[in-house]
Design a protein around this nucleic acid. Structure first.
Length: 723
DNA sequence: CGAGTGGTATGTCCAGGACT
DNA sequence: AGTCCTGGACATACCACTCG
């Protein structure tokens, strides 16, 4: 359902026809079942179901014809995340399918299982025909959709998706073959004939050679069918002379694509890349979308021409050694990389702000009996009679030990802040204190030898955080790290992390947006599809931010509101007479994934101190460059953030519910406060308190069912079941 | 159109319970 | 005793809306 409330219903007749080719699959969400009708991409916005809820059953059939996204929103009453990837992740998680042995499994798990059963990676290189119900042009049967030839270029075992490249225009789209209206064969199925959906039963002509991963220009599949679908139906694939084995041999020699150099066409497989010197000099509409864009410079064109010529010459040759093709392949790869870099959105970002240093407070907030800390992050624990260090990071509070010496506690906080917040951390002491060797600097004089190791342990991602010594500031025995090691590596690593942040930040918003889909399988860039990419990064469609919603319809699936920090705003100075309370201005809110990078950098620094090898992978980034549970983490993060508000509200509601709630008294208090102090914030806070509690209490009831849903989602993610 | 206002999100401090 | 976690209170930043 679009925002205007006008539902865009596909060619229902063709859609249902295509669905009739599929096995009957029922998806379930909170007891509401729907028949999966499939779709020609794996996106939740392209996979259709027929809902069987009582409401839909009593209305026109079209009323129950929903995409997966619509179905989830329909059943839960909640908005899915704006990010298509997050929405996909949620849909694939919350929708259940009864699998083998009557076991309920998530849609995502089901798709993985079915994809493996179909052949998984073995299908790479196969030709396949995809049915697009909405495309009428050239359809064999008017109004019944169009078949388009494509080939399978890669497979993601993590998601069960196959990546198809359409022969007509080279567009690549991800698909769940198990529920896709596809046909395995050399030609499209004749009208009125059901397609062959068994790849094992396909004829040999559909067996092709896999593209080499490093030369496959992976593309996102975020575009809708109308925008990226092949616009023109094509006929039967190029007739290939000779037997299948001959084709196989020749295609192995050719490598990957038909290449036209100097106007001469060279055979290959799947798709035609027509490039000649004329084309390269003046890219035309004929040019490949991957290589022929005008942004490709003259140098790039000539390199490309050389590469293609080399490869074509090799293809024409008597079949020399594979090494002959390697240079061309490598050149193509480099060209693609250069081209991708050239066509990528410019990475522009202001230099990272220097570390914010707030000198040690001159005036003690309290002396004598009043045990109020003079330092940030340090508080007096009445029970233990020690200074306790806590730091709020990554959405919650972390404990960094207790100290008998307030200064020690303050320095412990500084170190924790450096680790968890990086250079933007507000410190109690000059950051230079922490760049000196512990043994020689004043830090060491303070007896805190656990600095570096603390930082490292604090970065371990576990909750433990810094493990300071006791009040005596003994080196952490668990760490076993030398206290004489300076902190410079740590700060250097942090600087590297900041650099990484800068690199990733260029996509900040669009990271969470467009890039999320732009994540390339096997990218290997290391920059990683930061879940920000996916992750923190909701929104599709490039750099444009979605307009802020006037009001979120609900809390559960709505994306976390991201404050776009004013980079120019400087932190407010500590007011004289005491530390400043409340949230200090933050130049840029570090996305969670960037924090992870910082943490990783800190760990690397500590590891380097111990002589340990540096971690080979970024945290949360899988070996294939894809973030681990990117969507789930992002969705969880989004829900967690708003949960901080929503949950807090609910929590407070629950806490206050026992007393029947004191909204009225709170309002009275508010009036008093307003009369007494005139402080706007206090007045407002008090006045709103009762309303918040009441609203929260209501929300807790309304959301009870959704909470159950969300809790299961969270639990599954924690259990490691990504989808 | 700009200032004022209200709502929301988030950071910080502090107290205290639970666990090891 | 130390650690971890949670809740309440408080404060500020940011944004949308209202109003003169």
């Amino acid at each position: 359902m679009d925002e205007e409330g006008v539902k865009q219903v596909p060619n229902e007749t063709a859609l249902r026809l295509a669905a009739s080719w599929l096995p009957s699959i029922e998806v379930d969400l909170d007891g509401i079942t729907a028949t999966l009708l499939g779709g020609h991409t794996s996106e939740s916005s392209n996979l259709y179901v027929q809902c069987h809820c009582p409401l839909c059953e009593t209305r026109a059939p079209t009323a129950g014809l929903n995409t997966l996204e619509e179905q989830v929103e329909h059943v839960t009453g909640e908005e899915l995340p704006e990010s298509p990837e997050q929405a996909d992740a949620v849909c694939r998680t919350v929708l259940k399918i009864r699998g083998p042995e009557d076991r309920m499994m998530s849609l995502g798990a089901f798709m993985r299982q079915r994809a493996e059963a179909l052949g998984g990676a073995d299908l790479v290189g196969r030709a396949v025909w995809m049915h697009w119900p909405d495309d009428a042009e050239g359809a064999a049967t008017p109004g019944m959709g169009t078949w388009y030839p494509a080939h399978i270029v890669s497979y993601s075992p993590r998601t069960g998706e196959h990546l198809l490249q359409y022969q007509e225009d080279g567009v690549q789209l991800r698909v769940f073959l198990a529920v896709a209206p596809c046909h395995y064969g050399a030609t499209a199925p004749p009208p009125g004939t059901p397609p062959n959906r068994d790849p094992a039963a396909a004829d040999n002509a559909s067996v092709l050679i896999p593209l080499e991963p490093d030369t496959v220009p992976q593309q996102r599949s975020d575009q809708g069918p109308s925008s990226h679908a092949p616009k023109r139906p094509v006929g039967v694939p190029d007739a290939r002379a000779g037997s299948a084995s001959d084709q196989l041999k020749r295609q192995r020699r050719v490598g990957r694509a038909d290449i036209a150099v100097g106007g001469q066409q060279h055979p290959g497989y799947a798709g035609t890349l027509t490039l000649d010197s004329t084309t390269l000099a003046a890219p035309s509409a004929q040019a490949s979308p991957e290589f022929g864009e005008p942004s490709l410079g003259a140098t790039g064109r000539s390199e490309l021409l050389a590469a293609l010529t080399s490869q074509a010459a090799f293809a024409q040759g008597p079949g020399g050694p594979d090494a002959a093709a390697a240079p061309a392949s490598e050149a193509l790869y480099k060209l693609q990389q250069a081209h991708a870099a050239a066509t990528a959105p410019p990475r522009i970002r202001a230099p990272a702000p220097p570390p914010v240093i707030i000198p040690a407070p001159v005036v003690a907030a309290s002396d004598g009996g009043a045990k109020t800390s003079r330092f940030r992050g340090v508080s007096w624990n009445k029970r233990t009679l020690k200074w306790q260090v806590t730091l709020y990071a990554r959405g919650r509070y972390r404990y960094f030990g207790s100290y008998t010496d307030q200064d020690e506690a303050a320095r412990a906080y500084d170190r924790a802040a450096l680790v968890w917040k990086g250079p933007s951390a507000v410190l109690n002491f000059p950051a230079s204190d922490y760049t000196k060797p512990i043994g020689a600097a004043g830090v060491a004089a303070a007896g805190n030898g656990d600095g570096g190791s603390d930082a490292g342990e604090g970065a371990d991602g576990a909750d433990g955080g810094v493990t300071p010594g006791t009040g005596a500031a003994q080196p952490s025995p668990a760490s076993g790290r030398s206290s004489g090691t300076g902190q410079a590596p740590l700060l250097g690593a942090l600087a590297a992390a900041v650099a990484a942040e800068e690199a990733a930040e260029s996509g900040d918003d669009d990271d969470m947006s467009g890039d999320e889909d732009g994540v390339q399988y096997g990218d290997g860039s290391g920059r990683g599809a930061s879940p920000g990419d996916t992750r923190a990064g909701p929104y599709g469609g490039g750099a444009l931010r979605r307009p802020r919603k006037k009001k979120a319809a609900s809390k559960l699936f709505t994306r976390k509101k991201i404050h776009k920090g004013d980079g120019a705003s400087a932190p407010l100075p500590t007011p004289p007479g005491g530390r400043r309370r409340g949230r200090p201005p933050k130049p840029r809110p570090p996305p969670e994934e960037l924090e992870a990078l910082m943490i990783q950098a800190a760990e690397a620094a500590v590891a380097a101190q111990d002589g340990a090898p540096l971690p080979s992978e970024l945290p949360g980034i899988g070996p294939d460059g894809e973030p681990i549970l990117p969507s789930m983490r992002a969705a969880m993060a989004a829900a967690g953030q708003e949960g901080s508000g929503a949950d807090g509200d609910r929590d407070s509601a629950m806490a206050g519910s026992g007393a029947g709630d004191g909204g009225e008294s709170d309002t009275a208090v508010a009036a008093d406060a307003g009369a007494d102090t005139g402080r706007r914030s206090s007045r407002r806070a008090a006045a709103n308190k009762g309303m918040r509690k009441m609203a929260a209490a209501m929300a807790s009831v309304v959301n009870a069912r959704r909470d159950g849903l969300w809790a299961r989602l969270m639990q599954r993610a924690e259990d490691g079941e990504d989808m």
